[in-house]
Simulated scan of single mutants.
Amino acid sequence: MKHLFLTLSYFVYCEAKKFDTCDLAKELNDIQDFPKSNIASWVCLAEHASGGDTKAISLTPAGIHHYGLFQLPQRTCEVGGNGGDCQVACQSLIDDDIKDATKCALKIFEDRGFYDWLQFNQTCQDINGVKQKLADCGFKP
C-alpha cells in the first residue's frame, strides 16, 4: 500500500513587503554581521519558504505556526510579547523590517544549520540557479 504524505499549510497575507531575488539579496547584504557568503542560500530559503513575503504565516497539520520571511517556528517567539528561543514577539517576525527575523534565523542556523528548514533541504541543495539570478541582476556581496 502506498502512502501519500501531504503537509498542509495556509498562508495569511496582509499588506506585506514581498521581496524578489535581487532585492532580498541586497537587503541581506546591508544587514551588519550577516554572513555574506551564504546570501544565495538564504535567498533560496526565503523564496521557497514564504515566497519572499515578510507577512507569511503557515500552520502545519500538527498545529505549529511558522512566521515570516524565513518561516520561523513558533518556539522561536512569543505571541503578545518577547519570548521563545529568540526572545522576540512573533509579530516582529512578520513585519517589513527583516532585522529581527534575520537575527532569529541566524541564531537557529548557528545551532543547527539549515536542518530545521524542510524547504531548504528539499529545494536549495543546489543553489547555482539562485547564484545565476543574483549575477544576472548585478549583485555582488
Results as ranks from 00 to 15, higher is better:
Glu110Ala: 15
His65Val: 06
Ala62Gly: 08
Leu134Met: 15
Asp96Arg: 07
Asp20Leu: 10
Met1Leu: 15
Tyr13Leu: 11
Leu59Lys: 07
Leu6Glu: 14
Arg112Leu: 10
Gly52Trp: 05
Gly68Gln: 01
Leu45Asp: 00
Pro141Arg: 10
Ala46Lys: 03
Asn38Val: 04
Lys18Gly: 06
Asp53Gly: 05
Pro35Tyr: 02
Arg112Trp: 11
Asp136Tyr: 09
Lys103Asp: 06
Asp33Asn: 15
Ile64Tyr: 09
Thr76Pro: 03
Tyr115Arg: 14
Asp111Pro: 04
Pro61Lys: 10
Asn82Gln: 12
Glu15Met: 13
Tyr115Leu: 14
His48Ser: 04
Pro35Leu: 08
Asp20Tyr: 10
Gln91Asp: 08
Cys90Gly: 03
Glu78Ile: 00
Phe70Met: 05
Phe139Pro: 04
Gly52Arg: 04
Ile64Cys: 09
Leu118Arg: 09
Cys14Trp: 12
Glu27Ile: 07
Gln122Glu: 12
Tyr67Ile: 05
Gly129Met: 08
Cys124His: 07
Phe11Ala: 07
Lys2Phe: 12
Gln119Ser: 14
Lys103Cys: 05
Lys17Gln: 14
Thr123Ser: 13
Glu47Thr: 08
Leu24Ile: 11
Lys18Ser: 12
Asp95Asn: 12
Asp85Arg: 03
Ala101Asn: 01
Gly63Arg: 07
Ala16Thr: 14
Leu59Ile: 11
Lys103Arg: 15
Leu24Val: 09
Ile31Cys: 01
Pro73Val: 05
Asp96Val: 11
Lys36Asp: 07
Ala25Pro: 06
Met1Ser: 14
Gly129Thr: 11
Gln32Asp: 14
Gln132Cys: 10
Cys104Asp: 01
Lys55Phe: 09
Gln125Cys: 12
Asp100Trp: 02
Tyr67Phe: 10
Lys133Leu: 13
Trp42Phe: 15
Asp96Gly: 15
Glu47Tyr: 10
Asn82Lys: 13
Gln74Gly: 04
Gly68Asp: 02
Asp33Pro: 00
Cys124Phe: 09
Gly138Tyr: 08
Ser50Glu: 05
Asp126Gln: 11
Ser92Cys: 07
Tyr115Asp: 12
Lys36Glu: 10
Cys124Asp: 07
Asp97Gln: 12
Cys86Lys: 03
Arg75Leu: 07
Cys14Pro: 13
Leu72Pro: 03
Cys77Tyr: 00
Asp96Lys: 08
Leu8Asn: 12
Ser92Phe: 05
Leu28Gly: 00
Cys77Arg: 05
Lys99Asn: 13
Gly63Ile: 05
Leu24Gly: 03
His48Arg: 11
Gln125Asp: 13
Leu45Arg: 00
Cys104Met: 07
Val79Pro: 09
Ala89Leu: 01
Val43Asp: 02
Pro73His: 06
Lys26Leu: 14
Lys131Thr: 07
Lys26Asn: 15
Lys26Gln: 14
Leu59Ser: 05
Phe34Tyr: 09
Cys44Arg: 00
Ile57Pro: 04
Gly84Phe: 04
Arg75Cys: 02
Gly80Gln: 09
Cys77Asp: 00
Ile31Ala: 00
Ala56Phe: 03
Lys131Cys: 13
Phe120Glu: 00
Gln91Asn: 10
Gln125Ser: 13
Lys131Ile: 10
Phe19Ser: 04
Gln32Phe: 06
